[in-house]
Amino acid sequence: MSAAIRFDHTHVVYPNGVRGLDDFDLEIEAGQMVVVVGLSGAGKSTMLRAINGLVTVTDGDVIVGGTGVRAAQGSGLRQLRAKVGMIFQDFRLVRRLSVLDNVLIGRLAQVPTWRSVIKAWPKEDVDIAFDALERVGLMDRAYTKASQLSGGQQQRVGIARALAQQPSVILADEPVASLDPVTSKQVMDDLQRINRDLGITTLINLHFLDLAKQYAERIVGLRQGKLVFDGAGDAVTEDDFNQIYGRAMTADDVLEAHVAL
C-alpha cells in the first residue's frame, strides 16, 4: 500500500441525478499537500466528501489508508472518519459551546459516549485538545464561547478540531473563502506548517489561483467531475488554468487582486 488516498473509478451521482464525480481516478501519496482547483460545481467538494463518506460513492471506490469507503458502515465508517479531519468554509463550530468543547468534538470517536454526553472528558483527550489549540495559537481562548471569536480565529479553532482527531488526512473545503486576504494567508500558513511538521496528508479546495500556486506541492484540476489537470504546484501555467476553467482568468480568481481593490 503506497497511496494514502486512492480514487478508483469513483462515481458519485446525487439522488437528483447530478453527477459529482465521473469515473474519477487519482492517487495521493502520504504527506502530500494537494490543492484542488476548479469552477464551482466542478466536483471539488464532492471529491473531498467522498473521502470521508459524507457523500455516497455510487460506483467504484475510494481507498483511504487501506480501507474502502464504500463498504464502511456504522463504527467502521466512524473509525475511518476519525482518521480524516475536515475543515469547512463556514467553520461549522457550535457557536454556543466553548472553544475547548468545540475542539473536543474532534475526540468524539475515541471517547466513550456516556463520558462525552456528560462532558466527563478523559484527561488525555483534554491534553490532546489543548495541544491542538496551542498549535494554532489559541490556547488562551480555550474557555471563550466560539461565537465571540473573529472569523480567522474561528477557522483556526476548526483546524484545531481537525488536529485533535490526530488524523492521517486533513480535508479543507474552501478554508479561506470566508476570510479577508491577510487572515487567509495566516490560515494557509497554519495548514502548511501542520502538513510539514506532522506529515499529515492535506487536500485543500481553493478557488484563488495565486494561493494555489503558492502553497501547493501538487495541483489537481477538476472540471465536470473529471480530472483535467495534475501537476506540480510551481509548474502550473496560466494556460493550464485557462484549460481547467474553460475560460480566461479574471481578477476574481486571484487573491492579490482583492487586496489591491
Partner: peptide, 17 residues
C-alpha cells in the same frame, strides 16, 4: 455535518450539534 465528519455517532451529533 462537522460532528459526523469527526466520527461522531447519532447520540454525539444530537448532544453537540
Amino acid at each position: 455535518e462537522a460532528v459526523r465528519a469527526s466520527g461522531g455517532g447519532w447520540i454525539e451529533t444530537v448532544r453537540f450539534a
